[in-house]
Each structure stands twice: as structure tokens, then as C-alpha cells.
Computed example of a mutant assay.
Amino acid sequence: MSEELHHVRLHVNGVAHDVAVPPRRLLSDALRHELGLTGTHVGCEHGVCGACTVLVDGRPMRSCLMFAVSAVDCEITTVEGLTNADDSLGPVQQAFLECHGLQCGFCTPGFMTTITAGLEENPSPTEDEARDMIAGNLCRCTGYQNIVKSVLRAAELRDAETTRAQP
């Protein structure tokens, strides 16, 4: 007996996708398996590690704790959607590159989406505020110092973009 499928429209990275998913399909699995967006990683499957963090209507959410059917009519942003309009690296991505904020890379997408949302709320964080911003995400490879540097550098890059965009 096959499981009933629900036809849902997911708005991911500015593009609408029509998918058929079982009612209990996790958003993380729908992103990875139905849409092929493998940047969203699944680590603990309990919402603890933060590797699966995506933005749902601009807020960081653990996609391993959310059903895909719950994301209908929401704007979802994955790490793939953090690039600039010209497909160049976005400020958070560029900062991770410049500051060596990535090690093995498994946790990196979750950090990047979390930081993107955090910088929307606090565009000029102090080092302590940067640490608070990433406190819910776990990395097994680093001592977090380069990730904190990446937060601060991303804030600088965003500020420079904003300054350039002003007439």
C-alpha cells in the first residue's frame, strides 16, 4: 500500500516548485531529494546541531523538524540562495572564504543561513554578539574563532554593499 502524496508548492530561493510529498516528509528531505538542493545538510535529525538550518520567511528554522507541507506559502532560502543576483558569492559566503570559516564544510550551510538572518537583526555585531548569533549551531572541526571572524567580516561586507548602493 503506497502512502498518500500531497501536492504542495514550495517557494525556494525565489523559485516556485510543485512537488508531491508524503504528509510526514521533512522539509530537509524535500529540499534534498525532491529539489536536488543538497546544500542543506542533515546531521542529528533532532534539531540540535543546526546543519539543516534554512531561512523560512527570513527566520532560521531547523528543516529537519519541519514538515514540507508546513512550508507552503513560505519563502524558503537555502545556502544556495545566499549568492548575489549575479551568482557571485554573497557577503556571508565571501566572508567564510576570506576568514577560513569552513573546515570540513558539513556545518557551514547552517552557519551561513543562521548568520544571514542574524545580520538582518543586528548588522553590526560585536564579537560577543557574533558568538551569541551562532550559539545554536555546532561545529566539530573548529574552535569557532574563524566562524566568529566570518560573522564580523560579513557585517563589514554587507555594510560596504549598502554604502555602494546608496546614491
Rank of each mutant, 00 (worst) to 15 (best):
116 T>A: 14
124 S>M: 11
134 I>S: 02
121 E>T: 01
97 L>C: 04
154 A>P: 11
147 I>T: 11
149 K>E: 13
101 G>P: 11
162 T>S: 13
142 T>P: 10
126 T>N: 01
104 C>L: 04
112 M>V: 15
150 S>G: 10
132 D>C: 07
154 A>I: 10
97 L>S: 12
106 F>D: 00
118 G>K: 01
117 A>E: 01
117 A>W: 01
108 T>D: 03
146 N>P: 01
128 D>P: 10
115 I>C: 06
126 T>M: 02
127 E>Q: 09
102 L>R: 00
138 L>H: 09
99 C>Y: 06
106 F>G: 14
127 E>F: 04
138 L>C: 08
148 V>W: 04
114 T>L: 15
122 N>Y: 01
134 I>W: 03
123 P>L: 12
123 P>D: 14
128 D>A: 15
108 T>F: 02
132 D>T: 11
152 L>N: 07
148 V>T: 12
155 A>W: 02
106 F>K: 10
107 C>F: 10
141 C>E: 13
154 A>F: 12
121 E>V: 04
122 N>A: 01
133 M>Y: 05
121 E>K: 02
160 A>F: 11
130 A>N: 04
126 T>A: 00
121 E>Q: 06
136 G>P: 07
122 N>I: 03
111 F>I: 13
130 A>S: 09
103 Q>V: 11
100 H>D: 03
147 I>W: 06
147 I>A: 08
136 G>M: 09
104 C>R: 10
159 D>A: 15
159 D>V: 02
98 E>Q: 11
115 I>H: 00
119 L>K: 03
118 G>A: 03
140 R>N: 13
152 L>H: 02
105 G>S: 08
159 D>M: 12
159 D>G: 09
150 S>E: 03
159 D>Q: 14
134 I>F: 03
123 P>K: 11
111 F>E: 08
99 C>L: 05
127 E>N: 06
105 G>A: 14
150 S>R: 01
131 R>S: 05
116 T>L: 09
101 G>A: 12
154 A>H: 07
162 T>R: 13
117 A>V: 03
157 L>A: 03
138 L>I: 07
114 T>V: 05
130 A>V: 12
147 I>C: 04
110 G>F: 14
